[in-house]
């Protein structure tokens, strides 16, 4: 009898513990499944597919080819150019958006007249359809009737072949992307700025720091977490630039604006090569991973923060 009682109590205890433990996992299960299906599965599929060959007609896998897909893209000058351009987009975008976003955020944080409107305008660019934005910029960049060349002409500067020049085109795509995407890091910085206690600025003012030294010694260090997030987001955004390339230049001229995202797209959807496209996507992911790890390491703060 005592044994029986003990086991039954034990079982009750286990049931009770189960009833206590189960609801937690059960509640996060849908999110885990959704994440798994929509986030990680495609990633795994891309990696797996990069080692496969495919039937070019119906894109069904036909076998394993080891690193052949990688060999193929690595020997393609188009890939090399797309790789270099991807890095170029990241560098240009980060160099342009991060300081600009910081500047705008600091400006908007002053709550000057018109800052609500300015914030709305910047966020509207972020919210606008990328394709529509690209079409609008296509008109702005138009070599003849476009606004930019009209401005250049009006101030007596030589007109520019924005989207068709070898060097100008990548910058033109990047410029549009900066305009489009600067709102995201700006919002991150704005949130970061608003989380900094006002007292710290007052303390700095009494400590004798002018505006620049306050920014340099107080604002900037305290924005470090925001900076890490913004760098991360913008690196991904810059790596993923696609729609403007597709609409404005189709990767041209001479591949000058192609990046890994566009290159992968073409491989898969125009050149019927899902294996090579997956290999290219994997390379793109590696670029993001390496750069963001480097950023996190470089932007690491003192242990107190």
């Amino acid at each position: 009898m005592p044994t029986a009682i003990r086991t039954s109590r034990k079982r009750n205890g286990r049931m009770a513990r189960l009833a206590e433990v189960l609801p937690g996992p059960a509640m996060i299960l849908p999110a885990v499944v959704a994440l798994g299906i929509f986030q990680f599965l495609p990633l795994v599929v891309a990696v797996v597919n990069s080692f496969r060959s495919f039937n070019p007609f119906n894109q069904s896998p036909t076998g394993w080819v080891g690193l052949a897909n990688y060999d193929e893209i690595f020997s393609d000058p188009g890939f090399q150019l797309a790789f270099v351009n991807t890095i170029a987009y990241i560098v240009i975008m980060l160099a342009a958006t991060i300081p600009l976003a910081l500047f705008l955020a600091v400006l908007l944080d002053q709550r000057l007249p018109g800052s609500t409107f300015a914030r709305g305008a910047i966020v509207a660019a972020l919210a606008a359809s990328e394709a529509v934005s690209a079409l609008i910029w296509n008109q702005l960049y138009d070599p003849r009737g476009g606004m930019f060349n009209a401005i250049l002409a009006a101030v007596g500067l030589p007109e520019q072949p924005f989207l068709i020049g070898d060097t100008q085109s990548l910058l033109s795509i990047a410029a549009m992307s900066v305009w489009k995407d600067v709102g995201l890091p700006m919002l991150i910085f704005l949130a970061g700025l608003q989380a900094i206690p006002r007292e710290l600025y007052e303390a700095a003012a009494l400590d004798g720091a002018g505006p620049w030294r306050t920014f340099r010694n107080v604002t900037l260090p305290l924005l470090r977490p925001s900076l890490v997030v913004a760098l991360f987001m913008m690196t991904i955004t810059a790596t993923r630039i696609f729609t403007p390339i597709l609409i404005l230049t189709q990767g041209g001229p001479n591949g000058a604006t192609s990046n890994l995202a566009y290159y992968s797209y073409r491989l898969n959807f125009e050149f019927m090569a899902p294996g090579a496209a997956s290999a290219s996507v994997v390379c793109m992911l590696l670029v993001i991973v390496v750069i963001t790890i480097a950023q996190t390491w470089l932007a690491r703060g003192p242990k107190g923060v």
Binding site: P161, I164, Q250, G251, G252, P253, N254, G255, R266, E270, F271, M272
Partner: peptide
């Protein structure tokens, strides 16, 4: 389809 997609941008590059 591949041929067509590969040659179009080349034509554009030649034009430019």
């Amino acid at each position: 389809f591949d041929y067509f997609n590969a040659i179009n941008p080349v034509v554009r590059d030649i034009a430019l």
